[in-house]
């Protein structure tokens, strides 16, 4: 029973983190129509900066703010100078460019910093709440709250604000958006800045648990990617629910079947959803006149 309880509760907590990782991908997708595979690598660069600040004695809050700002700045630069200009060759070229950026960053990190695992400070030590037999640390609670607030804010932003609606319009029909006077390139660049900041936030909650290496955030972004595929690319609520389902399902797999099958169970779930409902559990089919 304890094992089940632990699997469920920690599944929900990690699920929301998967959702946040996924939402960082959705922000760019919702404007430009492709996914950035450099998300984890942008986070890693920002986290190394945070790591050195922490080594130099900076308090956690400063470290956290610096990581988010660095993520936003690096995301903005990558979008501005590499990926958005590449869109003129099509979204596939742009998506490939994000892979190239990611691998380049990893290579530079391995060459100049080294790939060994480094400890990263946590948002809060010690037990904050105990639910049944499960104790959640302050870091878990803060992660849950921050992820929840950010995901809710983004969902509202895309649905209710003029900038959010205009971003969706750029994705829907970029030519029409331009003709109506929407500055689509600026909105695309903005999505990269927001997405970079989200990469930083996601990294802040991943690095203390999995320690900091050039690829540790990437490992979780894969779960985030699965969350948005299962939930549906255009549904932030879907990303949250499917993030939690993935969190619980993978925890149950680890607890009751075999820890080696965690990734297998994740991808089986992904394939099943894609076969049965390609637009995701909560996604809508795109409208097209035939």
């Amino acid at each position: 029973m304890d094992l089940l309880e632990t699997s469920l509760i920690s599944g929900v907590v990690s699920g929301l983190l998967y959702a946040l990782a996924g939402v960082g991908l959705v922000v760019i997708y919702r404007v430009s129509g492709y996914v950035s595979f450099a998300q984890g690598d942008i986070a890693a660069v920002a986290l190394y900066l945070g790591f050195w600040l922490h080594q130099g004695g900076a308090p956690y809050l400063i470290v956290a703010v610096a990581v988010v700002i660095a993520g936003a700045a690096l995301g903005g630069l990558v979008g501005r100078f590499v990926v958005v200009p590449m869109e003129r060759f099509g979204i596939l070229a742009a998506a490939m460019a994000t892979i190239a950026v990611g691998i380049t960053i990893q290579g530079l990190e391995n060459a100049f910093i080294g790939g060994e695992a480094r400890p990263f400070p946590s948002a809060g030590e010690g037990t904050a709440v105990t639910i049944g037999s499960v104790s959640l640390t302050w870091a878990d609670v803060i992660s849950f709250l921050v992820c929840g607030v950010i995901v809710a804010a983004l969902a509202t932003g895309f649905k209710r604000t003029r900038v959010g609606i205009a971003m969706r319009a750029v994705h829907d029909n970029p030519g029409a958006a331009e003709m109506l006077g929407v500055a689509s390139v600026s909105l695309k660049r903005m999505s990269w800045i927001v997405s970079g900041a989200l990469a930083g936030v996601t990294g802040l909650f991943i690095a203390p648990v999995y320690s900091l290496t050039p690829t540790s955030v990437n490992a979780i972004v894969v779960f985030g990617f699965a969350a948005i595929v299962v939930g549906g690319f255009d549904s932030i609520a879907g990303a949250v629910i499917s993030g939690m389902v993935i969190g619980i399902a993978t925890n149950l797999t680890a607890a009751y079947i075999n820890t080696d099958l965690v990734t297998t169970s994740l991808f089986l779930m992904l394939v099943a959803v894609l076969l049965l409902r390609p637009q995701g559990l909560f996604g809508r089919r795109p409208m097209a006149r035939v």
């Binding site: 003029r162 609606i165 205009a166 969706r168 319009a169 829907d172 029909n173 030519g175 029409a176 958006a177 003709m179 109506l180 929407v182 255009d234 809508r284 795109p286 409208m287 097209a288 006149r289």
Partner: peptide, 15 residues
């Protein structure tokens, strides 16, 4: 060239 996946009101908002 309407925005097919946006609502009618959202199309007006974007304009």
């Amino acid at each position: 060239m309407i925005f097919a996946d946006l609502t009618v009101r959202e199309n007006l908002e974007v304009a």
